[in-house]
Amino acid sequence: MAKTYNLTTPLSSEDTRQLESGDTVYLSGVLFTARDAAHKKLVDLIEAGEPLPFDLEGSVIYFVGPTPPKPGDPIGSAGPTTSYRMDSYSPTMLKNGSKGMIGKGKRNQEVKDACAQYDSIYFGATGGAGALLGKLIKSAEIVAYPELGPEAVRRLEVENFPVTVINDTKGNDLYQMGREQYEVK
């Protein structure tokens, strides 16, 4: 039976191990944004043994490229982008301390295995709910790669940001489980 949790970042292994695919989590605290281009830069730094622009330990990475903010707003619309494009980078991020990712759509086996190995969670946010999710972001500041425009790394402060556990630390996958339950053969 799916449960509901309220968690604050940074996340610990204790936080992530209790979660199961299908659970709802309201996240508060800090999220860092990164899409394809930023992931490549971050992973290059890790592989070169150089310092990162933010602390990965316990971090939650949000795969998003927001619309430009209107004057007076911290950010524009900000829903998740499709996650598989980050599949080749995510295991390195998780190995180096990141405890969560927020995106949409299925991940490959290497990412699911990395979630189990490093006590990390792949969360799904509702794709296309950019106005709703953007409103829950209280502040946004660029911490790296401003030249990437919408793809720059931003530090977001969020309150009760709704996500669903897709891949948990036990190797479960909500996309497979949900589909098997409702498929008519």
């Binding site: 998003v64 490229g65 927001p66 619309t67 209107k70 524009g76 619309s77 900000a78 829903g79 982008t81 509702t126 794709g127 296309g128 709910a129 950019g130 106005a131 709703l132 999710l133 953007g134 409103k135 919408p150």
Partner: peptide, 15 residues
């Protein structure tokens, strides 16, 4: 989301 976007003139989706 659609209600918020319409009322507050925020883009429905970032894409």
């Amino acid at each position: 989301n659609a209600d918020i976007a319409k009322d507050e003139k925020r883009p429905l989706c970032q894409d």
